[in-house]
């Protein structure tokens, strides 16, 4: 049996190699050997971020991200992990409200993004698909997230996204959130046109942007808890 240090290294390596069977068996061994669930999550996340780098360098592709997501969910569904995460609500790194905009019912990109955000410690409220602007506004008022993610792979959602941003302005919520758009036809011009703060053509970049935002929000010395919520 390997010691915990070795196990952790191996888990990272096999996550990176997308070897589901080895990750699950080593994760089980590690938990049985006393590794804390949160630490295991950190180890898996380290592997996930290596997967992310391989994706950025075009060694891995979206199918590989999906497999990484499958492995991540397999680890989370291990008994000891389920027991821990259902009982213990740790403070999230940040809160995100995510949804596919009205007129669009595609969710593959949003799902990948959600998985990566959660893997990186965000609490994600997933509104689902075909979401009208009123529902976005209501949920932002209720959840008080740091970040709103609008997903919309079809080109006909550009106007709808603009309307959602305008709805936030009207509801005096616009300066309280950062808005990121996820779609694979997005450009800086379109992002500007819509009025969002950033955009991402894929989930790894989107997650990076969200992490950077949280770092900058936290550096401003704002209290990051549920009561004061947004900066």
């Amino acid at each position: 049996m390997n010691n915990l240090g070795e196990l952790k290294d191996l888990i990272i390596k096999y996550v990176e190699q997308l070897d589901e069977d080895k990750v699950v068996s080593l994760a089980t061994e590690a938990l049985d050997a006393g590794l804390e669930p949160l630490e295991l999550l950190g180890v898996v996340n380290e592997g996930m971020s290596r997967v992310g780098k391989l994706y950025e360098n075009k060694n891995y592709y979206i199918a590989d991200l999906i497999v990484a997501g499958l492995i991540f969910r397999q680890v989370l569904s291990l008994d000891k992990m389920r027991a821990h995460f259902y009982q213990d609500h740790k403070r999230p790194l940040g809160k995100v409200v995510l949804g596919t905009v009205q007129g669009d019912i595609h969710d593959i990109g949003k799902d990948i993004f959600k998985g990566m955000l959660e893997a990186n410690g965000f609490e994600v409220t997933d509104l689902g698909v075909d979401i009208p602007k009123e529902v976005f506004v209501e949920n932002v008022q209720r959840v008080k997230p740091h970040i709103v993610g609008l997903s919309g792979p079809l080109t006909n959602t550009i106007e709808t996204m603009k309307e959602i941003v305008e709805a936030f302005v009207k509801a005096e919520l616009r300066d309280q959130v950062k808005i990121i758009i996820g779609a694979n036809h997005m450009t800086t011009d379109i992002c500007r046109y819509i009025g969002a703060d950033s955009f991402a053509n894929d989930a790894t970049i989107g997650t990076k942007v969200c992490l950077e935002w949280m770092e900058s929000i936290n550096k401003q010395g704002e209290i990051n808890d549920e009561k004061s919520g947004i900066h």
Binding site: D104, H106, D107, D130, L154, N156
Partner: peptide
């Protein structure tokens, strides 16, 4: 193939 609220016929996964 489901008609969305705005009348578009699309397909969820």
């Amino acid at each position: 193939f489901v008609m969305s609220s705005s009348g578009f016929l699309q397909h969820p996964e």
